[in-house]
Simulated assay, not measured.
Amino acid sequence: MPNWQGSDRRSRLPADWQKIRLRVLRRDGGQCTTLTEAGARCDSSATDVDHIRPGDDHSLGNLRSLCSYHHRIKSSQEGAAAANAKRRAIAKRFQRAEQHPGLL
């Protein structure tokens, strides 16, 4: 969903989120912390602060600076994983515990 529409994420951020965000960006030197395939750090400027482990842990150890490209990729992967988990849970509810009579 573009522009956080339908999300309650902003309301779950701490009141001092802007201070925490700036602290993380400064700590990481204003540069994206993603490692490239060659093992080098991405050379793009960091614009976003990402939660390493999903959820509401806003401690500095769980936050890192990312460029918008890498943050979008990570968020997309997390969203796809959540959608797949939901799909599997729904499909599991409709699994038959017994064999279909036509297959006996």
Rank of each mutant, 00 (worst) to 15 (best):
residue 1 M to F: 13
residue 4 W to Y: 10
residue 5 Q to T: 13
residue 6 G to C: 01
residue 6 G to Q: 01
residue 6 G to N: 01
residue 7 S to H: 09
residue 8 D to P: 09
residue 8 D to W: 11
residue 9 R to L: 14
residue 10 R to K: 10
residue 13 L to S: 13
residue 13 L to V: 11
residue 14 P to L: 03
residue 15 A to D: 15
residue 15 A to L: 15
residue 18 Q to A: 14
residue 19 K to W: 11
residue 20 I to Q: 04
residue 22 L to N: 10
residue 22 L to S: 10
residue 27 R to C: 00
residue 27 R to E: 00
residue 28 D to H: 03
residue 28 D to E: 04
residue 31 Q to V: 15
residue 35 L to P: 01
residue 35 L to C: 06
residue 37 E to S: 15
residue 40 A to H: 14
residue 40 A to L: 14
residue 42 C to A: 02
residue 45 S to E: 12
residue 45 S to I: 12
residue 46 A to K: 02
residue 46 A to H: 04
residue 47 T to R: 12
residue 47 T to Y: 04
residue 47 T to I: 03
residue 48 D to S: 07
residue 48 D to M: 07
residue 50 D to P: 03
residue 50 D to R: 00
residue 54 P to H: 10
residue 56 D to P: 00
residue 57 D to R: 01
residue 58 H to L: 03
residue 59 S to D: 05
residue 60 L to Y: 13
residue 60 L to A: 11
residue 62 N to C: 02
residue 64 R to T: 07
residue 64 R to C: 11
residue 65 S to P: 05
residue 66 L to Q: 06
residue 67 C to V: 06
residue 69 Y to W: 14
residue 69 Y to F: 14
residue 69 Y to I: 13
residue 70 H to F: 06
residue 71 H to Y: 08
residue 71 H to L: 08
residue 71 H to F: 07
residue 76 S to G: 15
residue 83 A to C: 06
residue 83 A to G: 06
residue 83 A to P: 09
residue 84 N to I: 07
residue 85 A to H: 09
residue 88 R to E: 15
residue 88 R to S: 15
residue 90 I to C: 04
residue 92 K to L: 07
residue 94 F to G: 06
residue 94 F to D: 07
residue 95 Q to I: 11
residue 97 A to D: 09
residue 100 H to Y: 12
residue 101 P to F: 03
residue 104 L to S: 11
